[in-house]
Simulated scan of single mutants.
Amino acid sequence: MLLEKQARTDLESRDGRRLLPLELSLCNTRKDLIWDLDDNSTIEDLVVQISEKDLTTLKLLADKTEEIGDVAYRMAESGRVVDLAALLVVAADKINESILPVRDAVLDCKEKTTIYEAVIREALALGGPTPSLRVAKRVTVLSESERAEKRKLLLYEIELLQLFGAVGLGCCTDRKLPSPLIRAAQAGDETIIELLLKTNIDLNDVDADGHSALHWCLKAYKQSCPQQMKSLSHTRTSTGTGTGTRARTHALWFC
């Protein structure tokens, strides 16, 4: 009734939390929902549980809230997998199409990107045993176990966003920046590389210098991470003769 009377959805609560109506509705949605990432529950299990709930109010608010992209990103950044899943169930297209100015953890600058790419980059930033100096400024308050826990949640969120088709909607708007797959290859992050290769991601994408993800894996091979190169080489050669020829060309170039 209030929404039909053009009630504003951008007003924040005055209880100190400064929450939008959509966020308050999320708090109610997750009541009585049992999902634990440590009990072998899958993302599919979570989505099924959420879909069985009455999400009418959440959907109405999601449809009317212009800031839904910002809300979804806050949920993702905080590792609130259940809340992000609920938002995707009711408004996946709206969230996946959102382009937000997000601070890049490694480059230490703001760029316009999708929530999907932002989550991947955050997971990459936490992936190594020792974060870069810029990333370290933000994660020094986290212990090693806390970093590992946060990355685990981010990996679940990558799967969740993939399940709702985020990968098929393009990447960040700044094409001078490398794609998620190239970034994962540069970081030698086998876990994220494997996650990305399960989708229909473009294997022929290159960075500003013309180097592909396979280029970077070949380069990293000399630094003892052959598994990533094996995964990418197999994927490229299995997609067709032309792609396989290009993969062999990359290998010869490095030789």
Rank of each mutant, 00 (worst) to 15 (best):
G128D: 10
D38V: 03
L195R: 05
K150I: 04
T42I: 05
V71I: 12
G16H: 03
M75V: 02
K110P: 06
D93R: 06
D83Q: 11
E77F: 10
D15M: 00
L22I: 09
S179Q: 12
N40K: 04
L232Q: 10
T65F: 09
D209E: 15
E77I: 09
L55Y: 15
L100I: 01
K150N: 03
L197G: 12
W253F: 12
Q228W: 08
T241D: 14
E66D: 11
T130R: 13
R8H: 08
T199C: 11
N40E: 05
I50M: 01
C217G: 00
L3T: 15
P178L: 00
V135T: 13
T56L: 05
D108Q: 06
E12M: 12
I120E: 08
T29L: 14
M1K: 14
E149D: 11
I34C: 14
Q228A: 15
L107S: 15
R103A: 08
E159Y: 07
G128E: 07
R30D: 04
R121E: 15
L37T: 05
S78C: 00
L181E: 01
R138G: 01
L214T: 03
A220D: 11
A123C: 02
L203G: 10
L177D: 06
C217L: 06
Y156R: 12
D104V: 05
E4Y: 05
R138W: 01
R246C: 04
A7L: 07
A125Y: 03
L22R: 09
V48R: 11
C171E: 13
E97W: 07
V119Y: 05
M1W: 14
A72M: 04
V135G: 06
R138F: 13
K219E: 07
L133G: 01
L218W: 10
M75S: 02
I158K: 09
L11K: 12
T249Q: 13
K64F: 08
P21A: 06
A185R: 04
D108V: 00
R121P: 14
L252R: 09
K59I: 04
V106A: 10
L100F: 02
R175G: 12
P129N: 15
P129H: 11
L37G: 10
L37N: 00
T57K: 13
G127V: 00
E194P: 13
K219I: 14
I50P: 03
D207I: 01
S145W: 15
E111M: 13
L46D: 09
D202G: 02
T241L: 14
N200P: 06
L107P: 07
Y116I: 03
V82S: 12
R183E: 15
D10C: 05
E12V: 14
L60D: 02
G170C: 09
L195M: 08
L87D: 01
T237A: 03
I182C: 04
I68C: 01
F254T: 10
A91I: 05
L196R: 13
Y116M: 00
F254D: 03
K152L: 02
L126E: 10
